[in-house]
Design a protein around this nucleic acid. Structure first.
Length: 291
DNA sequence: AAGTCTTTCAACCGCTAGATG
DNA sequence: CCATCTAGCGGTTGAAAGACT
């Protein structure tokens, strides 16, 4: 079999991270930057394996991570991207820069999958022609967006909007602790102003990313101009999508995408963004149908 | 109030691809 | 070319919290 897990070494700590460990890790990364994870446990004295350090950083401590409830728009994006890309959480996460792949994956598994299933069973009972393969979400997504499913659209419109306290309250308990500790650390560090500036820079970069994303979205819409929105998928995108679906169903998606041709994602991306811009409302409503 | 069940999500595991010597 | 190492990804697990009886 393969190599033993890196965490099998004696003395390597597992389980939840303590705020103290978080501070050690964050301060080290602030100093040296992320990367070279191998050396992190040795240099910091953390009794964690390098992998654990990296995961803790990328999924939890990295600046600019947004936590807490997903917005309806984010939900819509995830549902949509999942239908397009499958369980490529990292790829999906790249479209939601403030969310981690782990977060998205968890949210999908705990919330969205259930909602989709629930909705689909509801929809199936309404429609005389159920999808051929009811185990996948793809059919749901495309069917949902088709003209034939006005019922679905009406259904979703009847649902309540997200509760007003949909902000990240439940995250506060842990994050606030870490934030407090980090504040303390920044105050006590040799050059706090520099570090604060770096933090601010990160924040700005994130908002810039957002702006970039938005402007990209807008310009694409202006260029392309899909007036009918989701229900009208341009031919060139449709062929790409059907290619991918075919590949995926035959289990060769990865190989084909990775080797022979560059991923036709620019098309998908363009189509997706056009769609989102044109159909923001529908996307925002999408998750509400399941509540 | 106490016990049980369900849900959530942070963290882990195993695998793979790419880099390096 | 091969072996090894590292980073990254997706699936899974299990502890904690919340909901329910």
């Amino acid at each position: 079999m393969g190599r033993p897990p890196c965490c099998d070494k004696i003395g390597i700590k597992k389980g939840p991270w303590t705020p103290e460990e978080d501070i050690v890790l964050v301060s080290y990364i602030q100093e040296h930057g992320p990367g070279n994870w191998r050396s992190v446990p040795t240099n910091t004295g953390l009794m964690r394996c390098s992998k654990s350090c990296r995961l803790r950083w990328t999924n939890y401590l990295r600046p600019g991570i947004k936590r807490g409830n997903f917005t309806p728009h984010e939900e819509g994006m995830i549902v949509h991207l999942q239908a397009l890309l499958g369980n490529k959480w990292a790829a999906i996460a790249s479209y939601l820069p403030q969310r981690t792949d782990n977060d998205i994956k968890n949210y999908w598994n705990t919330h969205l999958k259930k909602k989709l299933k629930k909705f689909q069973t509801g929809l199936d009972s309404h429609l005389s022609t159920p999808p051929a393969d009811s185990s996948t979400c793809d059919h749901f997504s495309w069917n949902f967006m088709s003209d034939n499913n006005k019922q679905g659209s009406k259904l979703l419109l009847q649902q309540n909007h997200n509760s007003p306290n949909s902000s990240s309250s439940f995250y506060a308990s842990s994050t606030e602790n870490i934030s407090r500790l980090l504040e303390g650390w920044m105050r006590s560090s040799p050059n706090p102003s520099r570090k604060v500036d770096e933090m601010i820079l990160h924040e700005n970069q994130n908002s810039q990313d957002q702006d970039l994303f938005k402007s990209r979205e807008t310009s694409l819409v202006q260029d392309g101009g899909i007036s009918n929105g989701i229900k009208t998928i341009p031919k060139e995108y449709m062929s790409v999508i059907s290619d991918i679906s075919a590949c995926e169903s035959s289990g060769v998606a990865e190989k084909t995408m990775n080797t022979n041709t560059p991923p036709p994602f620019t098309y998908l991306e363009k189509w997706l963004l056009e769609e989102n811009a044109g159909q923001v409302e529908e996307l925002m409503e999408l998750p509400m149908i399941f509540t």
